[in-house]
Simulated scan of single mutants.
Amino acid sequence: MSTIFGNLCCMFRRCLFSVLSIGPIPDHIAFIMDGNRRYAKRTQISTGHRVGFSALISVLRYCYEIGVKYVTIYAFSIDNFKRKPEEVQSTMDLMKEKIDELLEEHSIVNKYGIRMNFWGNLNLLNDAVRLSVEKAMRNTSNNTGPVLSVCVAYTSTNEIAHAIEKSCCQKTEMMKRMHANGFENGVVEKNTQTMVTVVDLEMHLFSNDCPDPDIIIRTSGETRLSNFLLWQSSFSHLQNPTPLWPEFSLRHLVWAILSYQRAYPYLQNRSKKML
Rank of each mutant, 00 (worst) to 15 (best):
S2T: 11
S2V: 08
T3D: 13
L8H: 09
C10R: 15
F12K: 13
F17P: 02
I29F: 04
A30C: 10
D34I: 01
D34H: 02
G35K: 01
Y39V: 04
T43D: 02
Q44A: 14
Q44N: 13
R50C: 00
V51S: 09
L60V: 08
I66W: 03
I73E: 04
F76N: 00
R83F: 07
R83I: 05
E86R: 12
E87V: 08
M92C: 12
K98W: 00
I99Y: 05
L103N: 05
N110T: 03
K111V: 11
G113Q: 06
I114E: 01
N117F: 11
L122S: 00
N123V: 07
N126M: 07
N126S: 12
K135T: 10
M137S: 00
N139M: 12
S156K: 09
I160K: 07
K166A: 14
S167P: 10
C168I: 15
M174I: 07
R177H: 07
N181I: 04
N181M: 12
V188D: 09
M195D: 06
V196S: 02
D200Q: 08
L201V: 12
I215W: 00
T219M: 04
S220W: 02
G221D: 09
T223S: 11
R224Y: 02
R224D: 05
L230H: 05
Q239L: 15
P241Y: 09
T242Q: 11
P246G: 06
E247G: 03
E247T: 02
F248P: 01
R251E: 01
V254N: 09
A256M: 04
A256D: 02
L258V: 10
S259I: 03
P265V: 05
P265I: 07
Y266Q: 13
S271I: 04
S271Q: 14
M274H: 11
